Simulated scan of single mutants.
Amino acid sequence: MQSCSSALCVLILLITTVTTSSGSASLSVTVKLNDSATLPCSERCSGLVTWTVSHKPTDVLAECDQTSCRSVKEGYQMIHDQYLKGNLSLTITDADFTKRDWYTCTCNNKDICDVALQLEPLRSSVQMKPGETLVLDLDVSDPVEVIYNSRANGSSGHICIVDRGSLECTVEYAQRASLTSALELKGVTPSDSGVYTIQVTRTEEVIHVYTVTIQDDLPHPDRDQETVVPVWGIILLILLVVLMGGCFCNVVVLQRRRNIMQRWRKTDGQRKKEKKKEKWLSLT
């Protein structure tokens, strides 16, 4: 009985090994939004190599054979020199949220590699004043849910679900939330401070994380714009003060000259009168 059990174990191990080796290798690659991504695949192939989105096997993105490589779809490429060396990697030049998916590499119509492309979650810090509207970009067309982690008491939970243009929120947020091209939460208060996470409902893939702070003492943007004086305004003010000072000095100098002239004329007139008087007295 023990020998039979051992033989059964060996048989199961062999079956598992054969199944694993005959299947395609699977892994995932994670990059930042709009970065290039390389989906690795190492295998010798003397025939045609193609890359496709896994659930669209007839929609070829890029391909290689012994002669050359071709980018069938813009933004996807393979390198022929690497193909000849057994490096069948696919390069996606601009990874965005629409390109998140499973990709399959085939050699002569046989699957040899499966690679998932994922994007690092976006992270945003938002500072607001009470009464303003919080805008949460959804970034993807997949059904998503919004999870809120409160800064005040540490509680967390789902507050809204967005699915194909429809919005469903908990009672607390139903009257304040609305859906346009983004999810909007009106009339925020300091108690709304915390972390808002946008994640795909089906896969729980995190898309965007917002760290939100609502404070009464934040400077108001309009008020700041009113109090800020541009550099050219300061220079103009200085020039105006200098010009007015120069004009004032000129007026003072002219007034002094006028007073001196008037005094001189008055003194000169008196001298002439005295001379005439002396002359008249001498004649008499």
Rank of each mutant, 00 (worst) to 15 (best):
V146L: 15
I147N: 01
H80K: 07
Q77V: 10
T106D: 06
E74L: 14
S150E: 06
V135S: 14
H158V: 12
M78C: 04
I147D: 00
R164L: 05
P121N: 07
A95Q: 11
G154E: 10
P143D: 11
P143S: 12
L90C: 09
S155C: 01
L90N: 09
L117P: 11
C160K: 03
V140Q: 06
L134D: 01
N87W: 09
D111Q: 13
G165S: 06
Y76T: 04
S89N: 13
N109T: 13
T133D: 08
D96K: 12
L122V: 13
R164I: 00
R123G: 03
S155N: 12
T106Y: 10
K110W: 07
M78Q: 12
A177P: 03
V115G: 05
L183M: 03
Y148P: 00
E145N: 04
L167E: 07
A182L: 01
S155I: 01
K85E: 15
M78F: 00
V146Y: 05
C160Y: 04
C113P: 10
L117K: 11
L136R: 01
S125N: 14
A95T: 11
V171D: 14
I92E: 08
K99R: 15
T133A: 02
Q118S: 15
L179N: 08
T133S: 10
K129E: 06
V171W: 03
V162H: 02
W102T: 12
V115S: 10
I79Y: 12
K85H: 09
F97G: 02
D94F: 10
S166F: 10
E172N: 08
C160R: 02
Y103G: 05
G154M: 07
S125I: 07
T170S: 10
S181R: 14
S178I: 02
V115M: 12
L122G: 13
K129V: 07
V146P: 03
I112D: 08
G154K: 09
L90G: 05
E132C: 00
Q127L: 12
H80E: 03
L119F: 09
N109F: 11
R70M: 05
G157C: 04
D94H: 15
N153S: 04
H158D: 10
T133E: 12
R70F: 05
S156L: 02
T170D: 10
R151W: 04
P130E: 01
G157H: 05
Q127M: 11
E120N: 15
P130N: 00
D111L: 11
S71H: 01
L84Y: 03
E132W: 02
A116N: 13
V140A: 06
M78N: 06
V135Y: 04
N149R: 13
M128N: 03
T93I: 13
H80T: 01
D96S: 14
A95V: 10
G75D: 09
C113M: 06
Y148T: 00
T98S: 15
L84M: 11
V126D: 03
W102E: 14
K99D: 08
A182H: 13
A182M: 03
S124Q: 13
N109A: 13
L88M: 07
K85C: 04
N153V: 02
